[in-house]
Amino acid sequence: MDSHAVATGALYGYRNQKSSSTNNFFESSVTLETFLFYTLGAVSVGSALMMVTRRSPVMSALYLILNFFALGGLYLSLHAQFIAFIQILVYAGAIMVLFVFVIMLLNLGDEKKLNERFSWKKIVGAGLSFGVLMELIFVFAFSKANLPPSHFEKATDIGTVENIGMQLFTTFLFPFEVTSVLLLAAIVGAVVLAKKKLN
């Protein structure tokens, strides 16, 4: 079973790291690691908040990029190099370009056109995100004692490209292959939808 979750060990890195760094913090020896953790954490939360509160879509997109970079930095500080680079490459690189394209094509420059009315949808949305926040706090702050021990001892070994590659071509070989079929289906689908003409 151990091998199953190795590739996703970054999360454990996260958990181990977090608990050890908080301990360090209380022992009043603020290492570079803890400093980075809190700085990047603050940047990511701050940029996420800025992103949802900006009126201009372009500003939101820029804050989202900042958020991606801060998250990438967090991954890096947790020894998950591969995930960190993928985060920057895929999210900050590819997905953001898509966002910017959509903003450009929709021509959302005039933010006054956006609906600013107070609606029940917003209340539901706010309620949901508050619920998720409470749930996260609940799970990670109050139920720590109940969490089973991590399957991994050395988080530093997990995040390397070698390890992830190894897992990808042994334990996770089959899902990896299925992904290729998935992508082929997606490509065919995209072509079909793009060729379609509306009356």
Binding site: A5, G9, V139, F152
Partner: peptide, 9 residues
């Protein structure tokens, strides 16, 4: 995944 200590199976 987090609750069970990283089990995917």
């Amino acid at each position: 995944f987090g609750l069970t200590g990283g089990a995917m199976d």
